[in-house]
């Protein structure tokens, strides 16, 4: 290839997401007619998961495939657009916003000043909730000791009455196992199952109700600008196609894992009724506004997002 770009993923090497991302990386050389090749590196191989933005700007890395919420500390706007808890009921709704509803422009308004160019969005899908106790609705969240990651997700659960505990991913399993916490926001159903979460927390909520992270594919802006329009278009298109195939592949894995769990007899998969999901979404939307107050960019994200949702009849009040 004329140009080889080093991308770092926010997933570890053995993770199914990473394998799917490798498939995308391998396809780029052919799709760009040999102009661009991508070398994909697993999480923390060059820098930590939340340091890639700086590394790309400095020219150490060329790009990343990363959960945008990791940069909430740089600007709350990243946290709000990465995981507007309750906004999307399916990956396709988020992709529609990104591709045709102004989401991409919004991402570039946020990223360009940091020296990055947004290429496209993907997601592992709607996360499933891990729990040791049966949760049938919002009321069951009262006083629930649960792990939630930094940012909006934690805030929303606090607003819903839960007692969020700040634990790193590495402590989730042991803490659930020993009962330090009763529930956790972790990952999609199949990943939770593979890591044995359901062995110690037997009441997963699936499909999830709380979180669907935006995973951005973006790269160094100067390098992007040096590419011709045709190559840029090919890259963008490759990411769109990858996002569709990733969502399909992971959803299939989830369905298989749910079947397996149900057949095993030890795990009780709980599905929340529509009204409970709506209740949770209302609580979540109330928290978007409080994030919006934290920075001008966050306010901008809030305005664009709520405008889009209202226009498309997705705001449920």
């Amino acid at each position: 290839a004329d140009m080889t770009l080093k991308f770092q993923s926010s997933d570890p090497a053995g993770n199914p997401n990473f394998e799917l991302q490798q498939g995308w990386a391998a396809s780029v050389e052919e799709r760009t007619g040999g102009k661009v090749a991508i070398e994909l590196l697993p999480v923390t191989s060059i820098v930590a998961h939340n340091e890639t933005q700086d590394a790309i700007a400095a020219g150490i890395l060329d790009g990343h495939i990363t959960d945008t919420s990791y940069f909430s500390g740089k600007d709350p706007a990243f946290g709000l657009i990465a995981n507007p808890v309750g906004a999307w009921s399916s990956p396709q709704e988020m992709f529609d916003f990104m591709n045709d509803g102004g989401g991409s422009q919004l991402m570039n308004e946020l990223l360009n000043p940091y020296g990055l160019q947004f290429i496209g969005a993907t997601t592992p899908g709607l996360e499933a909730f891990v729990s040791k106790v049966p949760l049938n609705g919002v009321d069951d969240l009262q006083g629930l000791k649960m792990r939630a990651p930094e940012g909006l997700v934690q805030q929303v659960f606090a607003a819903a009455g839960a007692a969020p505990v700040n634990l790193p991913g590495s402590e989730v399993f042991t803490s659930l196992d020993k009962g330090v916490i009763d529930a956790a926001d972790y990952s999609v159903f199949s990943t939770n199952a593979a890591q044995g979460m359901h062995d110690v927390a037997t009441y997963p909520v699936y499909p999830g109700f709380h979180s669907m992270p935006l995973v951005e594919v973006s790269m160094n802006k100067a390098k992007w600008d040096s590419l011709d329009a045709e190559t840029q278009a090919a890259l963008s298109e490759s990411v769109r196609e990858f996002a569709r195939s990733q969502v399909a592949a992971l959803a299939a894995r989830d369905v298989a894992a749910v079947e397996e769990a149900k057949a095993g007899g030890k795990v009780t998969v709980i599905d929340w009724p529509a009204e409970e999901r709506a209740k949770f979404r209302t609580i979540a939307a109330g928290q978007w506004a409080s994030v919006a107050e934290r920075s001008t960019n966050a306010q901008h994200v809030y305005d664009v997002l709520t405008g889009y949702l209202t226009e498309n009849g997705l705001m449920n009040q």
């Binding site: 570890p12 590495s170 593979a194």
Partner: peptide, 19 residues
């Protein structure tokens, strides 16, 4: 157990830390 080596391994290899 418990062991940080096994925890880090489990996270990298996507296998159950309990196992």
């Amino acid at each position: 157990p418990p062991s940080i080596v096994l925890i880090i391994y489990g996270l990298t290899a996507n296998v159950s830390i309990g196992d």
